Simulated scan of single mutants.
Amino acid sequence: MTQSQEHISREVYQTTADWLRAHTRHRPEVAIICGSGLGMLADTLECQDSFAYSDIPGFPQSTVKGHAGRLVFGELKGKVCVCMQGRFHMYEGHTLSKTTFPVRVFKLLGVKTLIVTNAAGSLADGLRPGDIMIIKDHINFPGFVGLHPLIGPNDDEFGPRFPAMSNCYDKELRCLATDIGKQLGITGLMREGVYAMVGGPNFESIAEAKLLHQLGVDAVGMSTAAEVVVATHCGLRVFGLSLITNKVVRSYEDVDIVNHEGVLDVGRLRSVTVQQLVTELIGKMDINNNAANDAATKL
Rank of each mutant, 00 (worst) to 15 (best):
G240Y: 05
P28H: 09
L236P: 04
K298I: 15
G188F: 06
G37P: 01
V278C: 07
V278Q: 06
N259I: 11
E92N: 09
I56Q: 07
S36G: 03
L38S: 06
L236C: 06
F59C: 11
M285Y: 07
K65P: 07
M165E: 08
S271K: 11
P102I: 10
R25S: 14
K112W: 04
S166K: 05
T117P: 06
D131S: 13
I139R: 05
E208M: 03
R25Y: 04
M190P: 02
A68P: 01
A231T: 03
I56S: 05
N246Q: 04
V12H: 01
G152E: 10
Q183I: 03
C47K: 13
S54K: 15
C47M: 06
H7M: 03
T245R: 03
M84V: 04
C81E: 04
G74N: 12
R174I: 11
L108G: 08
K65G: 01
T100S: 14
G267L: 02
C175R: 11
F158W: 07
K210M: 03
A231P: 05
T187R: 08
L123G: 08
K98T: 09
C47N: 14
A225F: 06
L20P: 09
H89A: 10
M165C: 10
E92S: 11
V198T: 15
A196L: 02
N118P: 05
V249E: 02
H213P: 00
I115V: 14
P163M: 14
V111M: 08
M165K: 09
R87Q: 06
S97D: 09
A52H: 14
R268Y: 04
G262V: 05
C47V: 00
L38G: 06
T63G: 07
C234G: 08
I115F: 13
P142L: 02
